[in-house]
């Protein structure tokens, strides 16, 4: 694992290496180099199993984090590649040519986060939602509760308590925090 990290350190601009477990490292890569880093890992280092691609919305910093997790089934090691893209112009290079199922992940991200992957097959087709006309729902600024209340006729009489607040009020009325 260490030798692989050291090797790719010399070839690509990577930073923030976090050792999650013995056989699992996270690292951050620049947006431009990510696809070539994945290609390198797949072809040279034997990371032949693509586990997942997903996005995290860091709305405070105005960035999307894309996480690619790759797995080497022979050496039994995993690597997680983080890359940050601008939230405004959310586009990323497509990696659909490396594995067939990457296109599905990218289709989902386009729909749920609004991250565009130009060139990815069927990326503009709707995957999960149908006739959705609001902002992409997985973005942090989309309020699902408000949307649900406005759209789906909530049944009167249903109350929801935040357990923390509720227990505090009920059990420890005197306690400060």
């Amino acid at each position: 694992m260490k030798s692989i990290i050291n090797d790719i350190k010399t070839r690509f601009e990577i930073s923030d290496i976090v050792k999650q477990r013995d056989n699992f490292n996270f690292l951050t890569c620049k947006k431009e180099q990510t696809v070539s880093l994945i290609t390198h890992l797949k072809n040279i280092e034997g990371f032949s199993h693509f586990v997942l691609l997903t996005a995290v919305d860091w709305i405070e910093e105005g960035k999307f984090q894309l996480t690619y997790i790759l797995n080497n089934p022979d050496k039994k090691i995993d690597i997680g590649i983080r890359t940050f893209i601008e939230r405004e112009t959310a586009t990323m290079d497509s990696a659909h040519h490396l594995w067939e199922h990457v296109a599905t992940y990218q289709r989902e991200l386009k729909e749920m986060f609004g991250i565009d992957f130009p060139g990815s097959p069927r990326v503009d087709e709707s995957f999960i939602l149908e006739g959705w006309d609001d902002i992409p729902p997985y973005r942090r600024d989309f309020d699902t509760k408000k949307y649900s209340e406005e759209t789906f006729f909530p049944r009167e009489g249903r109350t929801t308590n935040d357990p923390t607040e509720y227990m505090k009020k009920k059990l420890y009325p005197d306690e400060e925090k």
């Binding site: 999650q20 699992f24 996270f26 586990v51 997942l52 995290v56 995993d78 357990p163 923390t164 925090k177």
Partner: peptide, 11 residues
């Protein structure tokens, strides 16, 4: 009820 977990990520 007050469980805060420090920043990190895992799979």
């Amino acid at each position: 009820l007050h469980w805060e977990i420090e920043k990190g990520e895992t799979y």
